[in-house]
Amino acid sequence: MINCLVVDDEQHAIDVILHYIKQTPFLKLVKATTNPIEALQIVNMEKIDLVFLDVQMPEISGLDFAKAIQGKAKVILTTAYSEFAAEGFDLEVVDYLLKPISLPRFLKAVQRVINTITSTVSFAQQAESIEDDYIFVKTELKGKMLKINLRDIDYIEGMKNYVAISHGGTKTMVLLNMKDLEERLPKKHFLRVHKSYIVAVSKIVAVEGNIIRLKNQRVEILLGETYRSAFHEIMKHKLMG
């Protein structure tokens, strides 16, 4: 059961979402309110899995609300205006519904929430198996070796004779080639997606065409043509809908 909160400054817009929630067996309404300040208190005090959130509200905008809850719940933005979509994506909202909202489009958005939750649980379970695993690498400084926890690695970029390992908000340059590193990393958790990139599966949050987006990373990683078939073959096992 997914616990839902509906926030919109217009009651008729709330009524539409409530009607759809009632028709969806796995959604449970916790509260519907026109007051975003009250909604913030509810998110902090109760178990809320999903917020249906209007963008334009008088006291606090939906975008500011999404920032304020800091990922405590999944967010589906609801609005009559399409120009906020890009900023919504930057906030990692699950979907963006344009009013008037149809039931099929509502259900598609909810399915995306389920996919996201399922993927998060799956990736968390995978991460547990590498929680304490690590590698030691030789850095640019002679005689210095650095321990890098596998769970902290976001992606690895090949740079001629070096690789740059992005981990824990920093990059470490290592005198190593991509092929050797690829063979040493567990294939269940790391995928070669380009001749110059290896990504951590658990850090993938979106794939847009041939662009891979990673959690908390602004970098866009190109899915190379040579690696597309293998990548999509692995990803399709997690695909729903």
Rank of each mutant, 00 (worst) to 15 (best):
I76W: 08
I76D: 06
I76Y: 08
I76H: 07
L77M: 15
L77A: 15
L77I: 14
T78S: 13
T78Y: 04
T79I: 11
A80I: 04
Y81M: 13
S82F: 01
S82L: 02
S82I: 06
E83F: 13
E83P: 03
A85H: 03
A85G: 03
A85W: 01
A86H: 06
A86W: 03
A86V: 15
E87R: 13
G88V: 10
F89M: 12
F89C: 01
D90K: 14
D90A: 10
L91D: 06
E92D: 15
E92Y: 10
E92T: 02
E92C: 03
E92F: 05
V93P: 09
V93Q: 07
V93E: 07
V94S: 03
D95F: 01
D95E: 12
Y96V: 03
Y96K: 05
L97E: 10
L97V: 07
L98Y: 05
L98S: 05
L98I: 15
K99F: 04
P100K: 07
I101G: 11
S102Q: 06
S102I: 01
S102A: 04
L103S: 00
L103Q: 10
P104F: 02
R105Q: 15
R105M: 11
F106S: 11
F106H: 12
L107C: 04
L107E: 13
K108P: 01
K108H: 12
K108S: 11
K108Y: 10
Q111W: 00
R112H: 06
R112G: 01
R112T: 00
V113H: 06
V113P: 09
I114K: 12
N115G: 02
N115I: 02
N115R: 09
T116Q: 12
I117Q: 14
I117D: 13
I117G: 02
T118I: 02
T118C: 01
T118N: 15
S119A: 13
T120F: 00
T120A: 12
V121G: 01
V121R: 12
S122H: 14
F123Q: 03
F123P: 00
A124R: 08
A124S: 14
A124C: 00
A124I: 00
A124K: 12
A124H: 04
Q125D: 14
Q125N: 14
Q126F: 01
A127H: 00
A127Q: 14
E128D: 10
S129N: 12
E131R: 13
E131P: 00
